[in-house]
Amino acid sequence: MKRKPLQWAALVLSTMILSIALSSCGVKDSTIQEKITEAAKNTPELSNITSTVKDGVVTLTGEVKDDAAKAASEAAIKAIKGVKSVENNITVTPPPPPPPATPVVSAVDEALGKGVTDATKDFPSVKAAVKDGVITLTGEIKKSSLPKLMQTLNSLKPTKIDNQLTVK
């Protein structure tokens, strides 16, 4: 049977397409699975995801914290050579609400603050603040009273005393 040139061209083209299709089909599921394992090492979103591969179709299951992670997981899998499609069964579980904020005043600061209140009671021109074990002094004080106040504050065992007092 004599073929026309156009028919030849069509045959060559279809053979090429077929060979490309065959080559992509040729990636074994086990190879894809290996690639996924490799990708998981570099993609934190995939760390809690389980994947199964069948005939080039990857099914993803597991939990992620948001939609972005779900999409990122799918994208990472799609980028692997030989993957025909991705069945994305990943569920999005929002992270639990953050634990209640820790009190601003630590127990140490509370005890220290009480001692500082007692110590500065008789020095109304002195203002004292306590944070992270550090006593910060502002205001003014008579020079003769300063050692007495400092001795008492030192005995409270603070981490540090930041003395910004104006000494008169």
């Binding site: 020079k143 300063l146 050692p147 400092m150 030192n154 005995s155 065992k157 603070p158 981490t159 540090k160 005393i161 930041d162 003395n163 007092l165 000494v167």
Partner: peptide
């Protein structure tokens, strides 16, 4: 005037 803030002396 104990301004340096680099010593805590608790000698009882």
């Amino acid at each position: 005037n104990f301004k340096a803030g680099d010593l805590i002396m608790n000698v009882d």
